[in-house]
Measured scan of single mutants.
Amino acid sequence: SPQLSSEIENLMSQGYSYQDIQKALVIAQNNIEMAKNILREFVSIS
Rank of each mutant, 00 (worst) to 15 (best):
L4S: 09
N37I: 08
Q3H: 07
I45G: 15
I27K: 15
E33C: 10
N37R: 09
I32L: 13
Q14A: 10
D20F: 05
S5W: 03
S1R: 04
S17L: 08
N37A: 04
D20K: 05
S13K: 14
A35I: 01
A35P: 03
Y18P: 09
N30T: 01
E9C: 13
P2F: 07
V43G: 13
I8S: 02
P2C: 10
I21D: 04
I21Y: 05
Q19D: 12
G15H: 05
N10T: 08
E33S: 07
Y16F: 10
Q22C: 05
Q14E: 13
Q22R: 00
S46M: 01
S13F: 12
A35R: 03
M34I: 15
I27M: 15
I21K: 03
S17H: 00
I32G: 09
G15M: 02
L25K: 01
L4G: 08
E9F: 11
S6V: 10
V43E: 15
Q22M: 11
E33L: 06
E9A: 13
N10H: 08
L4P: 03
R40N: 11
Q22G: 01
E9R: 12
Q3Y: 08
S5A: 09
E9S: 13
M34T: 15
Q19R: 13
N31C: 00
S46Q: 14
Q19I: 08
I8Y: 02
Y16C: 02
V43M: 15
Q22V: 04
A35K: 02
K36E: 08
Y16K: 02
E41Q: 10
Q22P: 04
Q3C: 12
I45L: 09
A24W: 00
I38D: 08
G15I: 02
I32Q: 12
S13R: 09
Y18Q: 10
S6G: 08
Q29T: 06
K36Y: 02
E7R: 02
S13Y: 05
N30A: 03
A28N: 08
S5L: 13
A35F: 03
N37C: 07
L25D: 04
E33Q: 07
L39D: 06
D20E: 13
N30Q: 06
I45D: 15
V26G: 11
I32N: 03
Q14I: 13
Q22T: 15
A24D: 00
E33M: 07
G15Q: 01
V43S: 14
Y18F: 02
S6A: 07
A24R: 02
E7I: 04
V26Q: 12
S44G: 13
Y18E: 13
K36N: 03
I27P: 15
N31R: 10
E41Y: 02
R40D: 14
M34H: 11
I45A: 15
A28T: 11
E9D: 12
I45K: 13
D20V: 08
N37E: 08
Q3L: 10
N31T: 01
F42A: 12
I45S: 15
F42V: 14
S46E: 11
I38L: 14
Q29L: 01
Q29C: 04
Q22Y: 14
A35S: 09
Q19E: 11
S44M: 15
S5R: 12
E9Q: 12
A35M: 05
V26W: 03
A28Y: 00
S46L: 07
I32P: 10
N37K: 13
N37L: 05
E7P: 06
E33K: 10
L39I: 04
L39Y: 00
S1F: 08
S6L: 14
S5M: 13
S6W: 04
G15K: 03
S13H: 10
A28W: 01
S5I: 09
S1V: 11
V26H: 06
D20I: 04
I8E: 05
K23T: 07
Y16E: 01
I21P: 01
A28V: 00
Q14C: 05
I38S: 12
L39N: 09
